[in-house]
Design a protein around this nucleic acid. Structure first.
Lengths: 166, 166
DNA sequence: ATTTATGCAAATCCTTTGCAAATCT
DNA sequence: AGATTTGCAAAGGATTTGCATAAAT
């Protein structure tokens, strides 16, 4: 998965933090400690995460560099605006993932263990564009999520599937 | 849109209510006034709706046949379980639409006016299946939403787009 | 007669907001 | 200094839950 990223990665000149600082300046916003902490933490790995996880991870990684929940929510919104993160809704909470420097992709979502598996498909984007064209619809993006059970969860015990959700 | 439905509609023997009654009985649940009211109302038209809209619509349609919010939520879950309704998340709330007797489809979602436009694509389902196969993933369904601006909203004023959401 | 369902009020969960104190530029 | 941010506590919106009462089998 990460190999794929390296290969397909879009050309990027600035580090996420640099890009974010640029964004902030262009808006007359300030480069604060907490915004720096958040960006660094978020781009240290490329897993999916939600606001809550981010708050506790940052806090436990270094008790000194703590950031409040409201600030995390505020900064995540800015990162989405800046094009650094992509946001998607999973059940009741929002999940974020890298957007800047990462190729477009969609997900397989295991309803058992809540795992997200990424996959890329040019066809999906093409279909979206074709359909949009037919409806004179101006596309800004799409979200495709394939629901089901991952191989790990398919074995063990009976797949008490959750029929609701998403 | 509705013409397409007529043509592509899957073979159906039972009315939604009959099917739901069957489902309820098979689970030792009861056929109550409010469950009947809800099913009838939901299948009177085939628009998308959320719990809140359903509560007020039912109430204003006939003040006598009122149903409480908790009951609506509980019944909607049962209808999803029964395969009569499909649930999807839009921003912060859940939106429902017919599933029983209606062909699989996906949506174009206007971020300006929140309108949902349905479209059908066999290719999407095929892609989902192909990808799932590659990952030994057992598919139970998918959700594809194309985000953007509908033609009606593209004209009037500048498209102050919402960059967050979904 | 039993058992399940309803409605109310209260509780949850996730996210946002008001505001005084702290931090940037 | 002057403006923006932060963190706290509280507010909000959507959905769920406990429980006594009402309705279905």
């Amino acid at each position: 998965m990460s190999e794929t990223f390296e290969l397909e990665a879009v050309e990027v000149n600035l580090s996420p933090l640099e890009r974010f600082e640029e964004f902030l300046q262009s808006r007359g916003k300030r480069v604060t400690q907490q915004r720096r902490i958040i960006v660094e933490h978020v781009f240290a790995g490329h897993e999916h995460f939600d606001a809550d996880a981010l708050v506790s991870q940052v806090q436990q990684q270094d008790p000194h560099r703590r950031v409040s929940r409201p600030t995390v929510y505020r900064t995540l919104s800015e990162l989405v605006e800046a094009g650094l993160l992509r946001k998607m809704t999973l059940g009741s909470r929002s999940v974020y993932e890298h957007d800047y420097g990462y190729p477009q992709h969609d997900h397989l979502y295991c309803q058992q263990c809540e795992k997200l598996i990424e996959f890329h498909s040019d066809e999906v984007r093409e279909i979206c564009e074709a359909v949009a064209r037919q409806h004179q619809f101006r596309v800004s993006g799409h979200r495709l999520i394939v629901l089901g059970t991952c191989p790990d969860c398919a074995r063990p015990r009976r797949p008490k599937r959750r029929l609701d959700l998403v």
